[in-house]
Amino acid sequence: MSSTLSSPLSPVVSLSNVHKSFGALKVLDGVSFDVGVGEVAAIIGQSGSGKSTALRCINALETIQQGTIQVCGHAIHDPALDRRALRRDVGIVFQSYNLFPHLTVEQNIMLAPTCVKALSKGEARDLAREVLSHVGLEAKADQYPEQLSGGQQQRVAIARSLAMRPKLMLFDEVTSALDPQLTGEVLKVMETLAREGMTMILVTHEMAFARKVASKVVYMHQGRVWETGTGAMLDDPQTPELRAFIGNGL
């Protein structure tokens, strides 16, 4: 096990000795890592290693039993956490897109800005056009999710999150349901976001993408951070577990 890498900038996300169990099943067993402003952190690991759970804990979708999590100045572990304030700072994109099927692409994007930030319909529509052009889908504004390919739906989901102007974006295996070509178009959008300086944490199985785009790679194994480093770590694994994982993954 390697030591945790300290980030040069003040951390946007900081996990410290986080423990989480589902009943008798220990999923996170003392997880600690930091993510700084503008960093792209890729969490990798086998299924069941706890990486998705770690991401969900960061967004307060799971409660933890022990340890502390700080996200954009919010104490996630604090029972008095103001969830709605947290939601203004953090966006998340899911593996299954979770677009609202009865709303058009544009309405999907406009919903939260009008409900949460009290934007007018006109302002929200302008915003929707802007984020849609960001993901290259302005032509699809009036379509319904089911009319789009999986890759397009996932780009809409990214645009929907971007419309809330988050300081941090979380991506939970967002390309796992897509074929290689559609995966490519989603990764391209994420790469653009990374270049623009968005702070991002992604749980992914795309090793090539992690190596290329991530400024920090966190390898999780059996509920622990087993190895952390830069993308180059994937070319020179220090532990037999990571070596075996990469051997299978690439």
């Binding site: 967004n59 979708l61 969830r83 709605r84 939601r87 203004r88 953090v90 966006g91 998340i92 899911f94 299954s96 979770n98 677009l99 609202f100 919903l111 939260a112 409900c115 949460v116 929907r160 999150s161 809330m164």
Partner: peptide, 12 residues
């Protein structure tokens, strides 16, 4: 998952 998405967007 729809509820989770709405929650994460900040909807009440």
């Amino acid at each position: 998952a729809q509820l989770e998405a709405a929650d994460c967007l900040g909807l009440s």
